[in-house]
């Protein structure tokens, strides 16, 4: 099995597809980082103009003021538990900024790296995975080399499994590189710090509303780790589905086309047909897992982290079963 996986990795590297994925990552991250940098400069300029403070120097005064303000609001007996919790979290963050002398307006490599993945998880990351997964099997079908593999003294399921495991290895590599490249490139712009800054998480949906009673702060590195773990899960899900399409369809172009259009369609289906309940069982609308962490999701009754993960797991398992059954039974006529 090990030599089969080694074979697949050698093929993947020789095809230069992995290199292509890295190139895209480098270009995109650089553009993002540059853009973020510009935005930050503009925001600072605006603040200076509007409030008469120099963002770089006077932010402490502002933070102090906000902190006192929030403490007063927290003490007010008319506040609900919900808003008290979020106030407490906000205060902790401000206090941390003051203690560590970190301007909250400043970007950091840690913040950028996390945000980059949060923004990539539902479209950009899946696209990269599709580039790798969609021709793993169909590529061999269209070039006829699948025959070379299937007439060896190796059972078919082993060959497919080696391909699938290779895909998982590639997913890890892609995420690892996305992380490292984000850190390095954004670090050049914003400095390499920020890993211990507190980030709020733990949002819930109760009765169709965002509930923040159980919100708490976790260090940025911890939060990043969660985001990248979820991204890995999403990569596995999208990878498995593309893998299935790649088994079912004989041409690479068709398999990339099918899975890409599904993905893109999913992004506006969730927007247009949000009242149609069936759509929530589609894998495409459940990919924004990190939104559950940051509390930036549209609260829909019944949709939460557990629900989305269950739906995605269902898709993954179904894809794998279909792939393996079809691949081991099919007649190879190419």
């Amino acid at each position: 099995m090990f030599s089969l996986i080694e074979n697949e990795v050698i093929k993947m590297i020789s095809k230069k597809r992995l290199l292509f994925v890295f190139a895209i990552l480098i270009v995109l991250i650089s553009v993002f980082a540059y853009g973020q940098n510009q935005t930050q400069e503009r925001t600072k300029a605006q603040l200076t103009q509007r409030m008469g403070i120099t963002a770089t120097d006077d932010w402490r005064k502002l933070a102090d003021q906000q902190l006192i303000d929030m403490k007063n609001r927290l003490d007010s007996p008319y506040r609900g538990e919900n808003s008290k919790a979020s106030l407490r979290v906000r205060m902790e963050q401000l206090q941390y900024n003051l203690d560590q002398n970190i301007n909250p307006l400043e970007q950091s490599a840690a913040k950028f790296t996390t945000r980059f993945m949060e923004q990539s998880i539902f479209l950009f990351l899946p696209l990269l995975i599709i580039m790798l997964a969609a021709d793993m099997v169909s590529g061999e079908s269209s070039s006829g080399t699948i025959k070379l593999l299937l007439v060896r003294n190796v059972p078919r399921w082993k060959i497919l499994l080696s391909k699938y495991l290779t895909l998982i290895i590639l997913e890890v590599i892609v995420l690892f590189f996305a992380f490292v490249l984000s850190v390095v490139i954004s670090g050049i712009f914003f400095g390499f710090g920020g890993w211990f800054a507190p980030v709020a998480t733990g949002f819930k949906v109760l009765a169709g509303k965002l509930d923040s009673t159980s919100v708490l702060n976790v260090p940025q590195w911890n939060y990043s780790l969660m985001v990248y773990s979820l991204a890995f899960f999403v990569a596995v899900v999208v990878g498995s589905i593309s893998f299935m399409i790649s088994v079912l369809v004989k041409s690479t172009a068709a398999s990339i086309g099918i899975i890409m259009s599904t993905l893109v369609a999913g992004n506006f289906i969730s927007f247009f047909l949000s009242d149609w309940k069936v759509t929530r069982y589609m894998f495409m609308v459940n990919l924004r897992l990190t939104d559950y962490l940051s509390g930036s999701f549209q609260p829909i009754e019944g949709m939460n982290m557990l629900f989305s993960i269950t739906v995605l797991l269902g898709w993954t398992i179904a894809s794998l079963i279909i792939s393996f059954v079809y691949f081991t039974k099919q007649d190879i006529l190419v």
Binding site: I10, K11, T145, K147, L148, V151, R152
Partner: peptide, 30 residues
Amino acid sequence: LSNVGCIIESPDMYKYLTGMENLLQLAAMD
């Protein structure tokens, strides 16, 4: 299949690999 060597229809090989790499790939399976 341990007893069989074959070419089916046309000698399709991995075009992006060298001849030797192709052989090594297939040899690694046996």
